[in-house]
Design a protein around this nucleic acid. Structure first.
Length: 393
DNA sequence: CTTCCACCGGAAGTACCGGTAA
DNA sequence: TTACCGGTACTTCCGGTGGAAG
């Protein structure tokens, strides 16, 4: 019985080759395309800093910042890839290492992966960090070239592990005789720089590059380029691309979001057996992504916020809307049945405002004259079912 | 015009963390 | 280790309020 279902899915999804995607990878956020539209200035700035390595000089350290999906990682990888390709042509000794410090998340692992890129064999455990460091220095000096290290998402790393490693890396050249090291740091969080050790900050920020968000027009160009590679001809029209770009531009010009939208639209079209992507598919994709976000937000809420949301859901399901007082009473009832010490009315009122700001419900202050002033709580019908599933106590 | 409902939301204070200096 | 700080989550207290009803 069940295997019939599986067979059927295999039949329809695997055996039939996709008529939508030529190469879905091209929409993946980690994919670095041949050209990066609208990042010419940033590429030029970074390349100008880095190319001195081809003359055997140590490039300045660089700090790159900008919001998510503004192409920081792509530009850094793009420039480094192309510059290191030129290295042999110019007879320069240049080594480039990229480390995502969110994925490679401990000091040891980061240092180990830097050291490994010089060809050293570093065990995944068993030796001290200082020993890895010593061997790395030695290997580097024997080789005697320039090592450019790109540390991505350093804000996450520093928040977890502190800035000791950065401090060491930034001053590593003092320990080196012949070789030289350059650090390129990438961060989403501008404030993060403030609480860095001032010495790290000044030497890491020898050069700084800020990435502005993309506007709708720029997003369109990016999507267009990727769509050409990712989809078969005739699957996406210009209209679809403009629509995706416009939707994503409303959300701070995040190219990653725009690409996600396009990819999910394609997946939906494929699932439906369509030959091309329609506006309807994009709308569905947008909802699908939104639902994921809502579910994520709701299910990770703190306890009392969840109880309040639960109370609101229960009431809205049967009456369409509820006042602060009604939510509070329902909340008291729920808290009691589950044995939680309830919070005060004042606080619950505040939690409702917070839930409104996250966008999980709407709480509008209204005056009903003789019947008092209160917040009216509503939940959009399309969210109700998702929230119902997400909020379990 | 006044009353008065059912709350709103500011202010000040407490309790409790996680981090940091000493 | 301890003392101290700043932030957050919450309580207590309370003056404030838009508009239907009288």
């Amino acid at each position: 019985m069940a295997s019939n279902i599986i067979d059927e899915i295999i039949e329809s999804r695997l055996k039939k080759r996709s008529r939508i995607f030529r190469d879905k990878e091209k929409l993946h956020p980690d994919y670095v395309p041949e050209t990066l539209p609208h990042r010419e200035n940033e590429i030029r700035r970074l390349a100008e800093i880095v190319v001195v390595a081809l003359r055997g000089e140590r490039p300045s350290n660089v700090l790159i910042y900008g919001l998510t999906g503004t192409g920081k990682t792509a530009v850094a990888r793009y420039v480094m890839k192309n510059v290191s390709l030129k290295a042999s042509q110019y007879g320069a000794r240049l080594l480039y290492t990229y480390v995502n410090t969110r994925k490679t998340d401990t000091t040891y692992r980061v240092l180990a992966s830097i050291a490994r890129s010089t060809g050293l064999r570093v065990p995944s455990t068993g030796i001290a960090i200082s020993e890895v460091y010593r061997r790395y220095i030695q290997a580097l000096d024997n080789w005697g070239g320039i090592h450019i290290i790109v540390l991505d998402e350093i804000d996450y790393y520093v928040r977890r592990e502190g800035d000791d490693l950065l401090y060491k890396l930034v001053r590593i050249n003092e320990d080196l005789e012949r070789a030289r090291v350059t650090i390129i740091g990438i961060t989403n969080d501008i404030n993060f720089i403030e609480n860095l050790d001032p010495r790290v900050r000044s030497s890491l920020g020898e050069e700084e590059i800020v990435f502005p968000p993309y506007n709708a027009e720029q997003l369109r160009d990016i999507l267009e380029q990727r769509a050409r590679e990712a989809f078969y001809e005739g699957v996406v029209s210009g209209e679809i691309i403009s629509y995706c770009a416009a939707l994503a531009a409303k959300e701070h010009g995040d190219a990653r979001r725009a690409l996600d939208l396009l990819r999910v639209s394609g997946e939906i079209a494929e699932r439906e057996g369509a030959e091309k992507i329609t506006i309807e598919h994009v709308k569905k994709a947008s909802i699908e992504l939104e639902v994921g976000r809502i579910y994520q937000a709701a299910s990770t809420l703190p306890l009392h916020a969840k109880l309040v949301l639960r109370a609101a859901i229960d009431l809205v399901k049967k009456k369409n809307s509820a006042t602060t007082g009604e939510v509070y009473n329902q909340y008291l009832y729920i808290a009691e049945t589950y044995g939680f010490e309830p919070l005060t009315r004042r606080r619950i009122s505040e939690i409702l405002t917070e839930l409104d700001m996250i966008g999980l419900l709407s709480a509008t202050v209204v005056s009903r004259g003789r019947y008092g002033k209160t917040k009216i709580v509503r939940i959009p019908p399309e969210l109700l079912e998702v929230l119902d599933r997400a909020v379990t106590i």
